[in-house]
Amino acid sequence: MLPPFWGCDVSRRAHFRRQGVFLSYLFLAPTVVSTVVFVIYPFLANFFYSTVQWDGFGPKIFVGLRNFVLLFQDERFWSAFGANFIYFVFVTALPLFLGLVVASIIARGQLAGTRFFQSAYFIPQVVAAIALGTIFRWIYAPLFGVLHQVLKIAGLERMSRPWLGAPETAVTAVGLIGTWAWLGFCIIIFVAGIQKIDQALYEAAILDGANSLQQFFHITLPDLRFEIAVVLVMTTVQCLGSFAFAIVSSTTGGAYGTRPVALYAYQLAFVESKVGYASAVVVVLTVLMFAIAAISLFLGERRFGE
């Protein structure tokens, strides 16, 4: 039997042959050419740069993997790596965990004013990270800062300290800006995910006598696997990339152990003129990010295979 649109399809195909494959490439050309030249070429060139010793202007000297050997012995790299690990806890793990808890409390049942709350929770996502850092630099400031004032009102003035100006507190203070900025995002994604879960599952669980904790672990958590993967990827990219870079630049400038790997790579390349070495740092960052993204997406995809 012929498919119902057989006639149409034939004429479409004839038409398509007339207009040719050439036309589709013409339609694709602006996007593809600009992406290849300004995104993919630099991305690939970075791998080549990582194998040379180069100040950015003079001749390139091929050194093979020496940059990577140096890098693994570089204390400043490991310190930046450590800062990134702490940011991972504050920007990825903490919002993920708190987001799951809050979403599972608020998502079941209707709340009035959902749109208002959604708007509010999302605002940090649309504001430049530099502006967020600028606001928090004031909040954390020692004498006329907001946090200092709040502690003073609460009678805890002696607990106050220059949060961003001391090695013991600076990394945590910067990390908490990330928690603050990403919590709302996580809540919204998870609430949307929970509302897609079939309510009958919960009703059946209640009939079987499952308490809310059991419902959370046996229904909510497995069904949110995909949303969790998405949040993991998005926040990890931000914690390794632009977000941490901009927040640190606008608060501590990288002092007191707050410098993330991305900022270290920037300073190596554009302040110290060690372009080849800086590229090796970026390569490590790239590999790390793709590994984390691949693992998260693999775990998230499994929902569809079951």
Binding site: T31, T35, V36, V39, I40, S242, A262, Y266
Partner: peptide
């Protein structure tokens, strides 16, 4: 090309881009 172009953060390309 297209999906790849969405994924790449600025940090990864800043040095060759300069």
């Amino acid at each position: 090309v297209v999906s790849f172009g969405v994924m790449i953060p600025e940090v990864f390309i800043m040095i060759p881009l300069f």
